[in-house]
Design a protein around this nucleic acid. Structure first.
Lengths: 110, 110
DNA sequence: GTCTATGCATAAGACAATTATGTATTAGAC
DNA sequence: GTCTAATACATAATTGTCTTATGCATAGAC
């Protein structure tokens, strides 16, 4: 697991990009996908994820669809058009930030 | 200027590495060096920098030397041995984190 | 003589995430 | 057939880091 402070500020970016790449997903699925993609290094906590999803939905970046699986409820999230462009923007900003950090820290990020 | 949330958690890393690369420096000088290296994109605020320097000093990672320039006071900071190894560790951790993020976001950071 | 830059420092408040807690279903181990 | 872990949602209290605001003081440019 990474020093968790570095993760700060990246949660929205992660959620938006994962949704962009994998389409309709539900909360728990997002945590698992991120866990897999990061080789168990990024473990999204529910206390952070759900408030973020609700916030993004309230801002019109995500739309939801509730589905009953047996007696269990699943809430699927999909990017809206605005959400898609924000996803791109956030990833771009992140890459840009890394380039700047590489210059300051004098390291190669390849 | 970058979206400031991304900067969270990177301040100590930046300070330690800049001190490692440039040796003895004072607070204001650090802000300017980072500003230059980042092409004006990372502007360290004093309210964040000074508490961080004091904290690193209290933890034995930095040692200080106060110098009078005319009537003005300058406080120079240098890495201790412990500070040097932490600097390396922090940079390594950061690069590692970026690799993980690249996998999650499916981007190249070059 | 005023404005900007240099140079230190602390305090109040905002904000995001962690930790803790709560509820409930389902699959598999034994 | 019972217990545990995984699945699946959600909110509240607390923590920690940073921004913003404030304060003091010197020096140089114009």
């Amino acid at each position: 697991m990474h020093s968790p402070e570095l993760l700060k500020g990246t949660l929205q970016t992660i959620v938006l990009k994962v949704l962009q790449d994998h389409g309709k997903m539900y909360g728990y699925e997002i945590t698992q996908r991120v866990k897999d993609l990061s080789d168990n290094r990024i473990l999204l906590t529910e206390g952070a994820l759900y408030p973020t999803l609700h916030k993004l939905e309230a801002e019109g970046l995500l739309k939801t669809e509730t589905v009953n699986i047996g007696r269990r409820v699943r809430k699927y999230y999909t990017l809206t058009a605005t959400g898609k462009s924000l996803a791109k923007e956030r990833v771009h900003d992140f890459v840009d930030f890394i380039k700047t950090m590489a210059a300051v820290l004098q390291v190669r990020m390849a």
